[in-house]
Simulated scan of single mutants.
Amino acid sequence: MSRARVYLDYNATAPLHPAARAAMGAAFDLCGNASSVHAEGRAARALIEAARAEVAAYAGTAPKNIVFTSGGTEALNLALTPHVETSSDKAKPFDLLLTGAGEHLAVLAGHRFAPSQLERVSLTPEGELNLEALGEALERARLAGRRVMFALQAANNETGVIQPVTVAADMVHAAGGLVICDAVQAAGRIACDLGSLKADAVVFSAHKFGGPKGAGALCFGPDGYHIKDLLLRGGGQERGLRAGTENIPAIAGMGAVLAATKARIAEQATALALLRDEMETRIAHALPNVVFYGASAKRLPNTSCFALPTLEAQVLLIALDMEGFAVSSGSACSSGKVKRSHVLSAMGVDPDLAMGAIRVSLGWESRPEDCVSFVEALAKTVRRIEARRDRPAA
C-alpha cells in the first residue's frame, strides 16, 4: 500500500481552505453580473462588497480602498507606476523605484518604471534589508531631486525572513516617498495590516493563504490612491481602477478565508514555529553539515530554507518527490528548471551552496508526523545520493 503524499510547499500555494470552498460554492450558484441592476446582478454585487469588507478589515483600511485583481502579480503591476497620486499629494510623478534586492520578480521587474529609474537596496547576510544602504539611497535621491517610490516585502518568499518594513517606511516617508508592501507571503501568517506596517499600500494573493488561485487585492491606506495610467481599461469596474467583469467566486473565497483565519493568526503562528523549529533540529541532527538561511533573523513561522554542501536542489527535489514529499527549491523556478536564487546571491551565499537550497513551508494542514517522516526521507535520500556519487566507476 502506497503512503499518502505529504505537501510541504505552502509558500508556493496553500490547499484550499474549507471557508473558501464553502463561499465559492455559494457564489457559483449566482448567475448575475455584478454590474447589472436587476436582482441577480445586485446579489452578485452584494457578494463582492461583502468580500471587499472582509479584505478591508484584514488590511486595516476602508472597503473603498480595496481593488480586486487576478493575483499578487497584477496588483503589483497596477501599483508600481510613476503616475500615482494620493488625495493629499498630487506632486510630480515618481522617478525612482527603490526595491529590496531580494524582492519577488514581480517587483524587481519595475513595471512602468524605466530601467534607469530602478535601484536595488542590498540585503544583510541574514537576508534582511540593509537599512544603512536604504538611507544612503534616499540621500542620493534627495540630492538628485528624485521622487521615491519604495517597494519591500513583508517577508521573503524563499527564506521567510521578515523585513523591517516599519523602520524602512519611516525613513521613506521622512524623505517624502511612498511605500508599497508586498504582503503576499505574510498574509494569513503574521499581522500585516497597513497600520502595523506603516505602508501606503499592501498587496495580497489569495492562493498563498488558502484562498483560490486567480484572486488578489491591492489595498490602499486611508489617504486613497489615484492611478493615472491604468493597466486594464474598459467598463470601469473596481471604481475605475481595474476593468473587467469580476471573478466573483474567487473574490468571495478570498474574503471568506481571511475572515475565518484572522483571529487565529497568532495561535497558528506559535504552533507552526514550534513545528518548524523541531523539524530543523531533527535535520541538523541527521545531517550535521546542513546550512540554514535566515535562521538567526526573525522569520515567518512556517518557513525553512536550507542547503547541503555538494548536493544540487534539483536532484533532491526529484528524489523527495518520488518519496512522496512536495517541497520546493529556495530559488525561482522557470519552466521546471531550478536556477540559482537571486535572494541567496544578495545575501552573499556561495553560488555552489545556493544551488542546493531547499525550501520547506508548512501550513494549516501540516502535522508533526509529516515533518518527522520528511526528515527521515531527506536523510535517507541524501545518504543514497552520496553513496551513489562516491561509488567507484566500474
Rank of each mutant, 00 (worst) to 15 (best):
I265C: 10
Q237K: 08
G234I: 08
R299D: 15
A269S: 14
K262P: 07
I248M: 00
H207M: 00
E246P: 03
H226W: 07
I283T: 06
T261S: 14
L241F: 13
M254H: 04
G221A: 14
Q268A: 12
E267M: 09
V291Q: 14
A250G: 03
G294W: 03
L275A: 04
P212R: 01
S296E: 07
L287N: 04
F209C: 08
A263R: 13
S205P: 02
E267S: 12
K208I: 03
V291Y: 06
L231D: 10
R299W: 12
T281R: 12
Q237R: 08
L272N: 07
A271R: 10
G236N: 05
K213V: 00
E238V: 07
F204Y: 15
F292N: 13
H207R: 01
R264V: 13
C219L: 06
R276L: 07
V290P: 11
D223L: 08
L197P: 14
E280A: 12
M279G: 11
Q268N: 14
L275E: 03
C219V: 07
L287E: 04
R233S: 12
L272V: 06
D200N: 14
G234T: 08
P288E: 04
H226Q: 11
L275C: 07
R299P: 13
T245Y: 02
L197E: 14
D229N: 13
A206L: 01
G294I: 13
L197A: 13
A284M: 07
V290F: 05
F204W: 10
K213C: 00
L230A: 05
A260N: 07
M254L: 07
S196E: 15
A259Y: 10
G214P: 03
F292K: 10
F292D: 12
A250R: 01
F204T: 15
G244T: 09
L231T: 08
K213S: 02
L258S: 12
K213D: 00
A199L: 12
G244M: 10
A269W: 08
D229Y: 06
L300R: 09
L274D: 09
M254V: 02
G234K: 09
I251S: 01
E267G: 12
G224L: 11
K208M: 05
C219T: 02
T281F: 07
V291E: 13
I251N: 01
D229H: 13
L218I: 04
G255K: 01
A286R: 14
L231S: 08
P301K: 01
